[in-house]
Simulated scan of single mutants.
Amino acid sequence: MSRISVRGFAVASATAVTTVGAVVGVASGNTQPSNDLEATAAGTTLLTDIPVGEQAQVQTASLTQQADAQAAAADTAAKKSAEEAARLQAAKDAKAKKEAAEEKAEREREAKEAEQAASRSAARDASSFSVQSSYTVEQVKAIARQMVPADQFQCFSNIVNHESTWNYRAQNPSSGAYGLVQALPGSKMSSAGADWRTNPATQIKWGLNYMDSRYGSPCGAWSFWQANHWY
């Protein structure tokens, strides 16, 4: 029951008491009402002061206020519940998106590794090339393209271009470094073949193995070369 309704019933009770007190006072010769009742009457709007036809309207308005308050509270609770549900869903979506991105990155990494492995397995060995008495730069590059993995060729080419400009007979007069990759000493390349002095395929084989074992790949060797101008 609202404040208006409660006060209305309290006023009705106070009115009844006031009426009884007045009768008793007259009977006893005391015509002065008690101070307590005066204070009650003075501080309260009596329900009986409201016309009888409007009393039901006042009580109906009180009930309407209660219903409105309850509806507002329900709306607030529903809004909070919806906001919390939205927050949880957003967190769930973000997690799913992150997992999907990680999964995609992993698939791409695996695909790249598989591609690199296929490229390496497809590379020809030095022994598969016919030996010639001499080779042009273009012929040497063609051999390298068939021996070096496709994704590593540019890095390999960058190093060879700086070291020997693709001259398989290049020799450093001061250090004695020799060949396409300027092995020091040149005789190191004998581990790849006895014809290391005259066969560019043998030199490429040795150079590729050297870059892979020391730097992980020709691109790893090229990164080191750029920082130090040697490898």
Results as ranks from 00 to 15, higher is better:
M1D: 13
I4G: 10
S5N: 07
R7K: 12
V11R: 07
V11M: 15
S13R: 14
A14V: 07
T15F: 09
T15K: 12
T18W: 15
V20D: 11
A22S: 15
V23K: 15
G25S: 09
G25D: 04
G29W: 07
S34F: 05
S34I: 06
N35F: 12
N35P: 10
A41S: 14
A41D: 10
D49P: 02
D49V: 07
I50A: 05
P51A: 09
G53S: 15
E54V: 09
Q55W: 02
Q55K: 08
Q57C: 08
S62C: 14
L63P: 03
Q66H: 11
Q66M: 12
A78M: 01
A78I: 00
S81I: 10
S81A: 15
Q89E: 12
K92N: 08
K92H: 07
A94M: 02
K97Q: 12
K97C: 05
K98P: 01
K104Y: 06
A105S: 09
E115G: 06
Q116E: 12
A118T: 01
A123D: 04
A123H: 05
R124Q: 07
D125S: 13
S127W: 04
F129K: 00
V137E: 13
E138K: 03
E138A: 11
Q139M: 11
Q139H: 09
V140L: 06
V148Q: 02
D151T: 07
F153V: 04
Q154E: 11
Q154N: 13
C155S: 15
I159G: 01
V160N: 02
V160L: 06
S164A: 05
S164K: 04
W166L: 01
R169N: 11
A170C: 06
Y178I: 04
Y178E: 01
G179W: 00
L184K: 04
P185E: 03
M189A: 10
S191V: 08
S191E: 07
P200D: 00
T202Y: 00
G207I: 08
N209W: 08
Y210M: 03
Y210S: 00
R214V: 14
Y215T: 06
S217Y: 03
A227N: 11
W230E: 03
W230L: 06
Y231W: 15
